[in-house]
Design a protein around this nucleic acid. Structure first.
Length: 261
DNA sequence: TTTCATGTTCAGCA
DNA sequence: GTGCTGAACATGAA
């Protein structure tokens, strides 16, 4: 589920349910989610700590530990945090579990493409992964500058986490649809006005999704994301949505509305 | 049974 | 170095 709006929603959920709670036990339920990290060091850093604050950068979530360090959560394609009170409510695909004095917080992730780690500061991870600025923090001027220097397809540039952190397949398609830009268009061919449209639209879409708690049913019916099916009608012109692979991902677009560039 | 999936990373090639 | 493609990761759902 997780692109920027989903991770922001997860952050607020964790703040609401788990902040200020002391971890009495941390369990790695499946080693895959801590692959590349020292599992025992993570457990040792978390146990006895309170979750002091939460911070998000792009699709990456950071949980501050009162005894020092930050737990990093990346949700991959299918990860989500689940807080529950009774042990029998533990979710089916729990891969990492925090036990508080009261209640539990699970990292639930069927496909196990998510990752948990430990860093001394959020910046450490942002720099190591060379993540670009957060999609909701970047200014219009910086956005235009970053995309003026980009090469290749517009959609690939929008999804490149090194350029801009937080936009994935669904929201990239949405932004391009609302700006009437072909996902395959050379990003070099875009005008400043088109780049500004992307920035403005991206902010509006991400904020709107956060506002409704990423419940797609509460997003406008004019959004492309309701029509991500082969042969579905375009919500703008009634034409037929088509798919094309860009940046290794399936892109839904309306050739009639997004044909110009 | 087969195909696809809101992500990241890496090898191979131009 | 840059960009693109395909595959790997691992598993549920349609």
């Amino acid at each position: 589920m997780p692109e920027l709006p989903e991770v922001e929603t997860f952050k607020r959920y964790i703040e609401r349910t788990s902040l200020g709670r002391r971890v009495v036990k941390a369990e790695v339920k499946n080693a895959v989610v801590v692959r590349g990290a020292d599992a025992s060091a993570i457990v040792a850093a978390v146990e006895g700590s309170e979750l002091r604050s939460a911070l998000r950068h792009g699709k990456q979530l950071f949980l501050e530990l009162s005894r020092g360090g930050w737990l990093t959560w990346h949700f991959g394609m299918t990860g989500e945090p689940v807080f529950f009170e009774r042990p029998e409510d533990e979710p089916r695909f729990d891969r990492f579990l925090l036990t508080f004095e009261q209640g539990f917080l699970a990292f639930n992730d069927p496909r196990m493409l998510g990752r948990i780690g430990l860093v001394s500061s959020p910046n450490e991870l942002i720099e190591r992964k060379r993540l670009g600025p957060d999609a909701l923090s970047i200014t219009e001027a910086d956005f235009v500058r970053a995309f003026s220097a980009a090469r290749g397809s517009t959609k690939a540039a929008l999804m490149d986490q090194h350029r801009l952190a937080g936009v994935g397949n669904i929201y990239a398609d949405e932004v391009l649809f609302q700006c009437r830009l072909d996902p395959r268009a050379e990003v070099r061919s875009l005008s400043d006005a088109e780049l500004r449209c992307m920035h403005r639209t991206m902010r509006r879409v991400l904020r709107k999704s956060i506002e409704v708690g990423t419940d797609f049913d509460r997003l406008p019916r004019t959004y492309l994301l309701h029509y991500r099916r082969r042969g579905a009608p375009c919500p703008k012109c009634g034409g037929t949505m088509e798919t094309v692979t860009v940046g290794g991902r399936t892109s839904y677009f309306c050739p009639a509305c997004q044909g110009g560039k």
